Computed example of a mutant assay.
Amino acid sequence: MTDGSEAGDPPPAAALRDAIDREASAEVESLVRRLRDGSDDAWKDRLRVLQSAADTEPSTVAPALPLFDAFLTDGDRPVRLRAVKTVVAVAESRPTAVEPLVEVLTERLYDDFYFVRARAAEALGLLARADPSAVDATTARARFLDCLGDEKPAARGKAAKAFAHLAAGDPDACRSAVGNFAARLDDESPVVRFWLATAVATVALDHPQTVEPIGDDVADLLADGNPFVRGRALECLGALRRDGWRPDGAVDFEPHLTDGNSFVQARACWALAGDDGRVEAHRPRLEELARADDDAVRRAATTALDGHAHGASGAGVQLVEDFRDPAYSFDADVEHPEPRENACPNCGTTYPPAGPPVCPTCDTPGR
């Protein structure tokens, strides 16, 4: 054996690193097969190598993903976690590579470790966005709804994100779940609120009448403390207003046009576009924003003033339409709006000031 090991032994970590460095995907797949078929004592250490590689060289690891079924169902929690994080890392750029693992990932939505549940939902959501036919929408909705009720915010956040992906791939697939979202829009986690608002807004663009029954719940999000949530709510309300819906109470757009966050300001302009009466009422402020330094705000304000209700996204404003594009990504502040010192970057567990070197919850090394 060129790596100095016996045929039945797990491949040395150095052999995996070398194959990955050479981008020899077929060799990586062969080594992962040996790893899967060998002793599980070496799995955690070797999966650390694969997880790191998936972040930087996902195309090299992707062909080996069908072999991850054994790792995802292993009795050792750190093994399952490293495996599912590797799957997600690959899925972010090559989501269809996850398709052979749909069944086992669906089972992992009920894993006894919440972070495995969360990442499994995320992987399935990424696949559903890229290829809606690859995921059974009925099963996915039911499992994601269960995860939305999880006691752990990280699991709820990933389930909400999975719904946003599912809606981006096929808005019809989320229509029957919209009514369930209303009770979750006030979740304590801003990440949950943001991704659910994204899912609702995405459905509203194609099926506003489906979302109108919870329109007042969405309007309540305009007072949310997180600017990204407020922005998504404005997108949704803009889509509903264009369909003729009006909230039970008056919606004052002035605070959002003067909001210090450009994400909110641009979407407030977009929500006004096409409503000549409201545009005229806010014309002085819109004219100011049409000269703003921020490109998205400037374009959105100009769009509103020009009266092109459906031109905002084409004019360069990133709205929910853009979320359907697999190349669209969000600022890290959306995922982690309230970063904390001494906190694990993966699961959020707070460390004591002096340690430990690995997260006691999810086994992530370093800080």
Score class of each variant (00 low, 15 high):
residue 227 P to N: 04
residue 203 V to K: 02
residue 208 P to Y: 12
residue 223 A to Y: 09
residue 221 L to A: 01
residue 175 R to Y: 04
residue 221 L to Q: 04
residue 238 G to N: 06
residue 208 P to Q: 08
residue 217 D to C: 05
residue 152 K to M: 05
residue 163 F to S: 06
residue 211 V to M: 12
residue 243 D to A: 14
residue 176 S to D: 15
residue 221 L to S: 01
residue 244 G to D: 14
residue 184 R to N: 11
residue 193 R to K: 10
residue 248 D to K: 13
residue 238 G to L: 05
residue 225 G to W: 02
residue 154 A to M: 10
residue 250 A to N: 04
residue 233 A to G: 02
residue 175 R to D: 14
residue 188 E to F: 06
residue 196 L to S: 03
residue 188 E to I: 06
residue 214 I to S: 12
residue 203 V to H: 09
residue 170 D to S: 13
residue 219 A to K: 03
residue 225 G to P: 06
residue 201 A to F: 08
residue 216 D to I: 11
residue 238 G to M: 08
residue 230 R to I: 02
residue 188 E to N: 07
residue 175 R to I: 08
residue 185 L to H: 08
residue 155 A to P: 09
residue 229 V to K: 03
residue 207 H to S: 14
residue 245 W to E: 07
residue 171 P to D: 10
residue 203 V to R: 06
residue 202 T to W: 02
residue 202 T to G: 00
residue 166 L to R: 03
residue 161 K to R: 15
residue 249 G to V: 12
residue 152 K to Q: 12
residue 175 R to A: 14
residue 201 A to C: 06
residue 178 V to K: 02
residue 176 S to E: 15
residue 233 A to K: 01
residue 165 H to R: 09
residue 203 V to M: 11
residue 215 G to N: 11
residue 235 E to R: 01
residue 211 V to F: 09
residue 240 L to V: 02
residue 189 S to C: 05
residue 190 P to D: 14
residue 232 R to E: 10
residue 195 W to E: 08
residue 224 D to R: 01
residue 212 E to K: 03
residue 238 G to C: 07
residue 156 R to T: 10
residue 173 A to E: 10
residue 156 R to S: 12
residue 211 V to G: 07
residue 165 H to Y: 15
residue 236 C to L: 04
residue 210 T to C: 09
residue 187 D to Y: 05
residue 240 L to R: 00
residue 221 L to T: 01
residue 215 G to Q: 10
residue 166 L to H: 11
residue 192 V to E: 09
residue 194 F to L: 09
residue 245 W to P: 03
residue 154 A to L: 14
residue 226 N to V: 00
residue 153 P to W: 14
residue 184 R to M: 11
residue 162 A to H: 05
residue 155 A to S: 15
residue 151 E to H: 04
residue 168 A to S: 13
residue 195 W to R: 00
residue 232 R to W: 01
residue 182 A to P: 10
residue 156 R to Q: 15
residue 194 F to A: 03
residue 182 A to L: 14
residue 243 D to S: 08
residue 231 G to F: 00
residue 218 V to P: 06
residue 154 A to P: 02
residue 205 L to Y: 11
residue 194 F to T: 02
residue 174 C to R: 00
residue 215 G to R: 03
residue 190 P to A: 10
residue 248 D to L: 07
residue 185 L to S: 08
residue 200 V to T: 12
residue 207 H to C: 05
residue 170 D to A: 10
residue 164 A to M: 09
residue 172 D to C: 03
residue 225 G to Y: 00
residue 194 F to H: 13
residue 243 D to V: 01
residue 227 P to T: 01
residue 192 V to S: 09
residue 222 L to F: 03
residue 243 D to L: 00
residue 195 W to M: 04
residue 189 S to Q: 08
residue 173 A to Q: 08
residue 201 A to M: 08
residue 174 C to Y: 00
residue 205 L to W: 11
residue 196 L to T: 04
residue 162 A to P: 09
residue 162 A to M: 09
residue 248 D to T: 11
residue 190 P to R: 10
residue 184 R to P: 02
residue 161 K to Y: 14
residue 225 G to H: 06
